[in-house]
Design a protein around this nucleic acid. Structure first.
Lengths: 88, 88
DNA sequence: ACATATTGACCATTTTAATGGTCAATATAA
DNA sequence: TTATATTGACCATTAAAATGGTCAATATGT
């Protein structure tokens, strides 16, 4: 009834996204790892939803030209929050 | 001229967002850390733009009820990519 | 003014992500 | 089919994130 999203679910979804991006580009884990200067194990862990660092995911996002967009979204959220006066 | 966004810039922006959220809620680093079950040092490192894990940022996003939204955005991106046939 | 809370900056230790490696199972191509 | 590439699963080691602590500087409140 209350299927709330858990942290592990989001990590799995991130992993699925990374795998989808990789497959869409038709490259192997090894090739992606090399172009990001990380190990294949790191790519593998991301894809299966293990814990990983923001550096790793941001490297991936940069590789697929999503870094600017993500940066913009975060900045927008920040401004929204700073503009919103506290209700208390 | 080419002010491209770097990974460190995004981490700084995430840190600024976290700090803005915390300030908006009027709570201290210690209080936030306690409610997330992480150390104050971790919050501090996030806010200043050091490297950190996705677990940490997702805990924060869950605390501010942004986990479902983020999950949905990631899922949407994934579906888009999987639907888009390769150009090659 | 004062007392108190918060923050920024460290630092040693513990925990864990990242690495590089192997190998069997599976997928892909010839 | 056979050969080759890729993946998933491990595992020991290294690098680094997380922890818990202190303390001076700064902010906040009385």
């Amino acid at each position: 009834m209350f299927n709330t999203i858990e942290i592990k679910d989001v990590k799995r979804e991130i992993g699925a996204l990374v795998k989808a991006i990789r497959k869409q580009r038709g490259i192997s884990q090894s090739q992606l790892a090399k172009s990001l200067d990380v190990s294949r194990t790191t790519i593998q862990n991301v894809e299966v939803g293990e814990n990983f660092t923001v550096d790793t995911i941001l490297k991936i996002l940069k590789e697929v030209d999503l870094l600017e967009q993500v940066h913009h979204e975060i900045s927008k959220s920040k401004v929204q929050i700073m503009d919103a006066k506290s209700l208390y």
